[in-house]
């Protein structure tokens, strides 16, 4: 394995601006966009780094995108980073949502607004699915780990099993599969 070029390290201002951007473009949820910006655009993290951080964010209680932002912020800038990254991620959308709540009470039923939102939502759904496909392709999981991922997809996406059961129920199998894969190497 050859050494990849060194990854850029963000300043505190970078963290603030980048997470602010992730929050404001985060249609359909934050996680797919956070990966896009942190891994592809900024190259601060690898796909593996990002997926590991998000995985831990999911087993901890609390919004997983928030947990991941705290861990990413802490990783680069300690306590200050752990405050700035999630603060920026929530701040922008919160202001937007307050405006939207007012606007929606007045115009939400206008057919034009509904039509545009419906089109954006359909595209955002595809964006989220496409991100998962891309991550799988880049992470190249061995068959046992792939099976755990597919089980999570079917359980949560098709059968709508409550997420705590999916996460805590599959975690032992994922860890077992990872252990086997690491031993085999």
């Amino acid at each position: 394995m050859s050494d990849p070029p060194p990854r850029p390290v963000p300043t505190l201002l970078d963290l603030f601006l980048t997470y602010g951007k992730i929050g404001l473009i985060g249609f359909g949820g934050i996680n797919a966009w956070a990966r896009r910006v942190l891994v592809e655009e900024k190259r601060w993290l690898t796909d593996q780094d990002y997926a590991e951080t998000l995985g831990l964010g999911q087993v901890l209680p609390g919004p997983n995108a928030l947990n991941a932002a705290i861990m990413v912020g802490d990783r680069f800038h300690g306590t200050a980073g752990a405050i700035v990254a999630p603060g920026a991620m929530f701040g922008g959308p919160l202001i937007l949502l307050a405006g939207l709540a007012t606007f929606y009470d007045a115009y939400g039923e206008v057919p034009l607004v509904r039509a545009v939102l419906a089109g954006v939502a359909a595209a955002a759904a595809g964006m989220v699915i496409g991100t998962a496909a891309k991550m799988t392709q880049k992470l190249k999981p061995p068959p046992a780990l792939l099976a755990v991922g597919l089980t999570a997809l079917v359980a949560a996406g098709v059968f709508r099993v409550p997420l705590p059961y999916v996460v805590l129920g599959l975690a032992p199998f994922g860890i077992w599969a990872a252990r086997r894969a690491m031993r085999a190497r």
Partner: peptide, 24 residues
């Protein structure tokens, strides 16, 4: 090992949330 084991669950759940959004 734990971190790697949680990765497929993280990715699987991103896909699931996309699927749920799409159905909606």
């Amino acid at each position: 090992t734990i971190e790697r084991g949680l990765v497929p669950i993280a990715v699987g759940l991103i896909a699931a949330s996309g699927l749920i959004l799409a159905r909606g």
